[in-house]
Design a protein around this nucleic acid. Structure first.
Lengths: 257, 257
DNA sequence: GCACGCTAGTTGTCAGACTAATAGAGCCAA
DNA sequence: TTGGCTCTATTAGTCTGACAACTAGCGTGC
């Protein structure tokens, strides 16, 4: 059931050419590189990116590979190209910030604290609502999936990959119980992004809290069919996660600059 | 302030080649065509798409143009290609259903009633939360934008493009007042999709309700800084919109099959 | 029955030429 | 001066054909 293609933390594929290979295919590497550059503000909205021929030559790749990378960025709303005008970075509100890749790029560089806050606010809005829906629609199989995930969470700490996977599984089970595709997709994106921040917190050894009781309360309310209770319990859970992350970010600021 | 590039209802650009041009660039037309085919179930998850050379020849386009279209679909999570294996349609839960283009493709064919319900549920969760945030953070400029949009709405019916634009402007103003990028992007997507359904309702002359009072209540609560009230007023608004759309869809079913 | 290597088929990348769109300069007229 | 028009240089868009890289699936040998 584990999907080996997604969360690969770059095993040593031995960068194929001159060291410029961030993973996956060549065009993927280029897209990744440009995406990170844009997300980190190296290319600002309105600015022009060097012309195809020049840039492709500079990166030492063919024009077609470079163009395919640009298509990817275009598909995600980051840039737009027109003949004679070149390709320029679109204003931030045209970016598909909820695209999993874009989120990943956003968290590759130094994560913007305001953006993290935005994500948690969104999560604080969506997940309680989802929990309420789940309380109304869950069946026995859904509840079992949640229980299993919960059990895994108590076996492994959030410091381990297994623990984080269990956490994700718990939330995914709730989402699945809503019978709502849009919610599933959205929360999958947010969940992945939040996963980055969890890793982030973990890196700082700033996770003193035991997450089990909070999760347990959510489960109990859903199992009881108590929508309002599930919503409220989930609200508390997300709130505390935000507080923990904010604290971690604060510490980084203190250490860093 | 009007964006001429997005909502173009295909002015007669005189299909350039043999009639196979859904608009925009060549690769865009191909991507659109394939995207609609996938969203409508013509190609099902797990199925293989004909090989590049064969398909490109069949469409009478070069392989590069075809490949760039495939990159777009890949970027949106619809397909995945690997050497020797070909390119195959990914399972539905990997699709970026909230991508504006994907949403557009989904509504090009016969909209799936369950998916519409999902979107409205998501909207019913997100927009009240957004309204509450807006009530806490709005400044004078935000309130003015909402008032202006409201005034435009009462001048033009929702049957006119101007009226729909005003409606969108009202919701956009609320989103902007939340100071939350993720919310803005998400609701822009949903809003566009909901726009399709509004047009849909309109096509059926099924909009007897006067939307102004509902919107007015939302504005008043936000202006008063009443988060709970704004949330509740918005909840009612979305609920009624869903009811109207559901009725319209019902009527289609009755007439259609 | 299982592991390993081979091969053919498919995508990935490259190179160079030509086409099409258009931003912006420059010109002309009111 | 100002406004609009044309014209051109520049840039992305498309095409072609070749070769490289990857790998699914088959075959072979243990």
């Amino acid at each position: 059931m584990t999907d080996p293609s997604d969360p690969d933390p770059a095993p040593p594929p031995a960068a194929r050419r001159n060291g410029r290979d961030t993973g996956r295919r060549l065009r993927g590497a280029i897209a990744h590189r440009l995406g990170v550059a844009i997300l980190s503000g190296e290319y600002k909205p309105g600015e022009r990116i060097p012309g195809e021929v020049a840039f492709a030559a500079e990166l030492d790749v063919s024009r077609s590979a470079f163009r395919e990378a640009i298509q990817v960025l275009t598909a995600k709303g980051l840039v737009e190209s027109r003949p004679k005008a070149g390709t320029l970075v679109l204003p931030r509100d045209r970016w598909n910030l909820l695209d999993p890749d874009v989120l990943g790029w956003a968290f590759t560089g130094a994560p913007d604290i305001d953006f993290i806050r935005s994500l948690f606010e969104l999560r604080a809005i969506v997940e309680p609502g989802a929990a309420a829906l789940a309380a109304a629609r869950r069946d026995r199989a859904d509840l079992k999936a949640m229980r299993d995930a919960l059990a895994d969470m108590s076996r492994h700490s959030l410091g381990t990959e297994a623990g984080r996977a269990a956490d994700r599984a718990f939330h995914a089970a709730i989402l699945a119980a809503t019978r709502n595709d849009a919610l599933v997709v959205l929360s999958a994106s947010i969940g992945a992004a939040v996963g980055w921040t969890t890793q982030f917190k973990q890196r700082l050894r700033a996770l003193p809290r035991n997450p089990i009781p909070d999760h347990r309360r959510v489960y109990d309310a859903i199992a009881a069919g108590d929508g309002a209770g599930a919503s409220e319990a989930m609200r508390l859970l997300v709130e505390q996660a935000l507080a923990d992350t904010a604290a971690a970010v604060e510490r980084v600021r203190g250490e860093g600059a």
